[in-house]
């Protein structure tokens, strides 16, 4: 067995890449920060230094698990869902809009309905790309991205518009959802809440579905070799559409959870980066749902670490994105010295 085919070896390869990435982070911090020791402390200790920090870290890890799972599902089936940003955002809008019209007496039922609305909104966006692919052979890499890019300004317009916009707020945001539909928080005032914990069972369920059922087998075959899948009689139409719909739906769920659990209203740009980071998680996890949870935790840690460094005044704001990009670059590398990682 060569390195490419041995899962253990490829896991070690990921760790090597991670080591290099962290090494680069250390170098960047040391060189660019006015206080390297403080910066390093902020980087490694910041994300876990308090209940608040833990809450934010967990919340982000779980959110990224959802979007990472969403991206993994699509990639695993050989489809490219680049529309995570728009699907998440639209899911948030759908959830919030529903809470504004449901009778308050619904309570938890209302929360579930709103979450479902978020899922449907995302699934529709994703599924639309899937349908375009089946019907017109439209490249889903482009359609998911374009649909998402046009969904964002649409949501921006709707969320501040009549009926939904919060005229009394100094922020660009929608009216808040009725308190009956607020998902209880955890480790206040962090972003964590009870609802996001559902990410764990969802990831586990999909991991089982993808790896241990006939449906999952066919999905993975589509991702491995589409020609073979077709030759073997697998319906390439359904297995193109369903993964994209599911992927969109999971993104939408993440958006809905973010709205109902953290801010309780739709704040402009609240989900910025969730979609793209989800793709990063999927890349680190090599599209395997089992690896999504650790990969999301890792990425969340890196993200929080970067923010912690900036927040402690140890790093210029503009460079945090560069910093993250460098780390991602290493982590998603597949070759080192020409040998596969």
């Amino acid at each position: 067995m060569n390195r490419r085919t041995n899962p253990l070896a490829s896991g070690i390869g990921t760790l090597v890449a991670l080591g290099l990435a962290l090494g680069l982070a250390v170098v960047l911090l040391a060189v660019l920060s006015p206080n390297p020791a403080g910066a390093l402390r902020a980087f490694f200790w910041g994300p876990v230094s308090s209940g608040l920090a833990w809450g934010n870290l967990l919340n982000q890890a779980l959110l990224l698990s959802l979007t990472g799972l969403a991206a993994s599902l699509a990639f695993g089936a050989g489809a490219f869902n680049l529309g995570g940003e728009g699907q998440t955002y639209t899911g948030g809008l759908a959830a919030l809009a529903l809470t504004l019209v449901l009778p308050v007496a619904w309570g938890w039922g209302g929360i579930l309905a709103a979450l479902l609305a978020g899922v449907m909104a995302g699934a529709l966006l994703g599924g639309l790309s899937g349908w375009l692919k089946v019907r017109f052979e439209a490249d889903e890499m482009i359609t998911t991205f374009l649909l998402s890019a046009s969904a964002v300004p649409f949501v921006n317009a709707v969320m501040t518009g009549p009926g939904i916009g919060a005229a009394q707020s100094m922020l660009i945001q929608s009216r808040p959802a009725p308190e009956a539909f607020w998902i209880p928080g955890l480790l206040a005032p962090s972003n964590l809440h009870v609802g996001i914990l559902v990410a764990v069972p969802i990831v586990v369920v999909f991991a089982v579905l993808v790896n241990h059922t006939p449906w999952g087998y066919r999905l993975r075959l589509m991702g491995r070799n589409r020609d073979f899948a077709r030759y073997a009689g697998i319906s390439t139409g359904i297995y193109a559409l369903v993964p994209l719909g599911l992927s969109g739906g999971l993104h939408g769920l993440a958006g809905a959870l973010g709205v109902l659990g953290t801010q309780h209203s739709l704040v402009q740009g609240f989900s910025a980066g969730w979609g793209w980071n989800g793709i990063a998680v999927a890349l680190i996890a090599r599209s395997n749902p089992w690896a999504v949870l650790p990969a999301a935790a890792l990425l969340a840690f890196l993200d929080q670490a970067g923010r912690s460094v900036v927040l402690q005044g140890q790093f210029p704001f503009q460079l945090s994105a560069l910093f993250q990009a460098c780390i991602l670059f290493f982590i998603t590398a597949r070759r080192l010295h020409g040998r596969p990682l």
Binding site: N56, P189, N191, G269, L311, Q312
Partner: peptide
């Protein structure tokens, strides 16, 4: 005195303020 820039994402300011306060 330390100056911290929070960036343009309004949704994140709350989290950032909370982190500053919690420290």
């Amino acid at each position: 005195v330390k100056t911290i820039e929070g960036g343009f994402n309004q949704a994140q300011w709350g989290e950032q303020i909370a982190t500053l306060a919690s420290s």
